[in-house]
Amino acid sequence: MAISEQTSIPSTPPITSNPTTSTTTSPPPDCHDSLMPSQFPAVPAVFGPVPNRAYHEGFMRKAIEMAELALASDETPVGCVFVHNGEVIGRGINGTNASLNGTRHAEFVGLAEIMAKHPQRILTQTDLYVTVEPCIMCASALRQYGIRAVYFGCLNDRFGGCGGVMQIHADRGVDPPYPVYGGLFREEAIMLLRRFYVQENEKGWRQAMKTAREVSLTKRLFAAPEPKPKKNRELKTEILPVTNVNPTANLTRTSTPAG
């Protein structure tokens, strides 16, 4: 329980439940703002229009399917596929629980499948579709590997490296930057994560009830206080539209929810 909670890559519980804490409404952190004013044009593009959207949604659907499978096995529901010339060459789900390695994110699992059969340079002609924005670590790895483009569902407001917390894909650096397109099936990606947290919480709740019953039986106590799931772990279904990533993009985005 502790492991799966703490190692889960993405966490978006507060993404819509409290608009004031949602990172989608706060300006991006300033990691490089004084050095890198040019990074900001890249950020609104995260939820900008996706050219040929239907084509990319087809592959994002496959990434969502991976995440659904993961959720069905009580694994963090993040899924990804790597696509080369219209063909899926790598798929990934979170591998941290299997490896006890907190860095074994879905993207890395997908890369491992690719590199089992292909030379590394294929990545310069390959696009990634991932249900949750890559974290800072993965964003840097993808850039070092020379990924061509990244498409994602929802922002990762805890660790995001492609606009959620930092802009590793676009910052000044020795490797060429790559474009990112966010918001493909965004609501579904968020709902997958919420379902996971509710599911995990209910498991914890059932376990707590069981423990409480055992305690009360063995100690001949009257009913122990009933542990209840935290209110914020209830499954919320309403999802606020993307408001903005960059303050300047505010006006154009509020009325056009992406994804």
Partner: peptide, 27 residues
């Protein structure tokens, strides 16, 4: 628990070429 997570990979239809995986992750 780790073994269960490992089986999830099979449920998801992911290949299990351990040699290739170890060769990539170099761990």
């Amino acid at each position: 628990k780790a073994a269960k997570a490992e089986r999830t990979f099979e449920n998801c239809g992911l290949d299990h070429d351990e040699k290739a995986r170890d060769g990539f992750f170099l761990d």
